[in-house]
Amino acid sequence: MSTSTATGSRRRRHGAVSPWAPYLFVAPFVVLFLLFLVAPIAVAFVNSLFSRQSSGLGFGGSSIEFVGLANFVRAFADRDFLIGFPRVLLYGAVQVPVMMAIAAFFALLFDTALVKGRRFFQFTVFLPYAVPSVIAALLWGFLYQPSVSPVLQFFESVGITLSPLASTVVLWSIANVALWSLVGINMIILFSALQSVPREMYEAARIDGAGEVRTALQIKLPMIAPAVLLTTLSSIIGTLQLFNEPQVLQTITSNIPSDYTPNMAIYATSTLGKDPHLASAMAVILGLATLVVSLLVLAANKRTTNRAGHGL
């Protein structure tokens, strides 16, 4: 009798596993997800509809009142905040393609076996990725100041005066920091994509007498093109969030105002301006703008992969 119950219970466990197990397993993530991802989004939306109103002459304290879309009206009336959007889009539209082109160029170069000392060069290109972006910005900040920078001093000595912090070029000096940090990781991604392509694919071209260069340009490049495109687009979305580099470089130049990028404006409004409600409205605007751009990119990507016949 006892044996039959044992097998019976085994059967039961075998068939339907204790039904709560999966829920207990995912519970920590779900709770944290609700608390620190869903709730902040809700907080942003709710907060953006309220405002702190000081009563009387400012002596009687203040109260938080529902103001409808007033914060959004104020955000959209803030020219400096709005101009940050085309600024970061321009930044992304230039920095990302340049970065990907250089990364693709290096990846193809490394894949051809034309480069002597490949491991050393791969290491040097990749090294900056191990430097946190904030520290990278600090470092380049020194190299951008004529008083300490050996690079500027070198160019000065050959008669070229560079001022990377001038208001007209400072955006590209910020881009240079990101470029320096991120070419390496993109190069590695594309390089491993190239390495996973079966060698036979270009054996034939080689037999036909095509050199390394022609093989790279006419066979390898088209093969990694979809990967390059996808990474490029998603990186441009990332640049909408630009914050670390300009925030750090801001301390050494007056040409980067505190609302230089949308994210910096949110930060400044929240801390310097002490207006978390307006900051929330700005965060909602930036979040929605990012979402729209992301969905456009996803749709465009779907179209291109459908046309190509197969997904990535």
């Binding site: 949110i266 930060y267 978390p276 992301s294």
Partner: peptide, 16 residues
């Protein structure tokens, strides 16, 4: 949620 930009929710997370 991969589409939610991390830095944008930093300010609301702080408020929370």
């Amino acid at each position: 949620s991969l589409l939610v930009p991390g830095t944008v929710i930093a300010q609301p997370t702080y408020v929370l």
